[in-house]
């Protein structure tokens, strides 16, 4: 097996995540699909790091993880405050800027 297969797997996971973002209406699940896409990118970075024989790819994946952690904290806070004001976690209901 060639490590290129890891890239194919990452592409597949990214595609599944992107499709999920387009299909699902529940804000939390949409957010989980975004996380899946980020993880797929990380896998690609790690595989590239191995192919090129240097650690830069792993550094980028590490920074992606940090950014993802910050993003999850803020995103989930937004979902919680949306749910408080609208009593729904559906992205369709959040169609107005203000209630």
């Amino acid at each position: 097996m060639n490590p290129v297969n890891y890239l194919y797997l990452a592409a597949l996971l990214f595609t599944i995540g992107a499709t999920g973002v387009l299909i699902r209406r529940n804000a939390i699940v949409v957010f989980m699909c975004v996380e899946l896409m980020l993880n797929a990118c990380n896998l690609a970075f790690v595989a590239f790091s191995r192919m090129h024989g240097n650690l830069d790819g792993q550094i980028i994946a590490f920074f992606t993880m940090v950014v993802a952690a910050a993003e999850v904290v803020v995103g989930l806070a937004i979902i919680v405050s949306l749910f408080r004001s609208r009593h729904s976690a559906s992205v369709d209901d959040a169609s107005l800027m203000k209630l």
Binding site: N2, P3, V4, L7, S49, R50, M51, H52, G53, L55
Partner: peptide, 8 residues
């Protein structure tokens, strides 16, 4: 062309 890889 990603046939060969270096390894870590």
């Amino acid at each position: 062309s990603l046939q060969e890889f270096n390894g870590l």
